[in-house]
Design a protein around this nucleic acid. Structure first.
Lengths: 110, 110
DNA sequence: TCACAATATATCCATATAGCTATATAGCTG
DNA sequence: CAGCTATATAGCTATATGGATATATTGTGA
């Protein structure tokens, strides 16, 4: 469980990998497409993708000759959930807002 | 700017360091207090604290003989802001909720 | 089936990281 | 100021990480 956060945060610590996630936020992409913006070798990109996949941040598909990657939001949610416990430290209005949300949620979110 | 995220995520990738932040969420603590739950040497803890401080996640004070640490929420907010861009991927209702919030904010948050 | 295209794996190198022990520094207290 | 307490720094070792190049694998299409 904590293990997951280790892998996720570690994966997110690299700017190349965050950029790859940014690209995947626009939809699935092949390895070649993901590699294109960088001056790194193709194997270097494959390695980054492996790290992201092992952290659960992306998933590999198969499509003809290529293995397109897609975003796997659950891992990012894991981070968001972890950090939510600290939100009160920077957002003073959080507590009131949170109360408010729990009341309106039945209307907004069903 | 991205540099900051590198350091922050990298600092958060270690479970000892996350546990230290968890402890600091309960208020400031000395190095000895922070070290207590772990079987690591004191210098190892000092090193972790240095990593956290350089990432901007904590700050050092001075109080008599000791140098208590406190949480520095801004760095965590940086992460939260980064991840917010991905929230729509796991929270389908986010867009509507966000719209709603921006309307009520004037009443709830002034 | 042969050659190409897309991607993965193997190997190697340089640097970074996490831990340890030993020692240094700084403030308090008698 | 001597000695204790709290913490930091130095130096060392083992392992992990990120990069490169070379090569292997797998699917497609002539």
């Amino acid at each position: 469980m904590n293990n997951k956060l280790d892998a996720i945060f570690s994966a997110l610590a690299d700017p190349t990998r965050r950029a790859i996630l940014g690209r995947l936020a626009n939809g699935k992409a092949t390895v070649a497409e993901l590699a294109d913006p960088f001056e790194l070798s193709q194997p270097a990109i494959s390695k980054h993708l492996k790290v992201l996949e092992q952290a659960g941040l992306i998933r590999s598909g198969r499509e003809a000759n290529s293995r397109p990657r897609v975003l796997e939001p659950a891992a990012l949610k894991t981070v968001a959930d972890w950090i939510a416990d600290y939100r009160r430290f920077w957002d003073q209005s959080f507590d009131r807002l949170d109360d408010y949300l729990s009341k309106v949620q039945g209307y907004e979110n069903d």
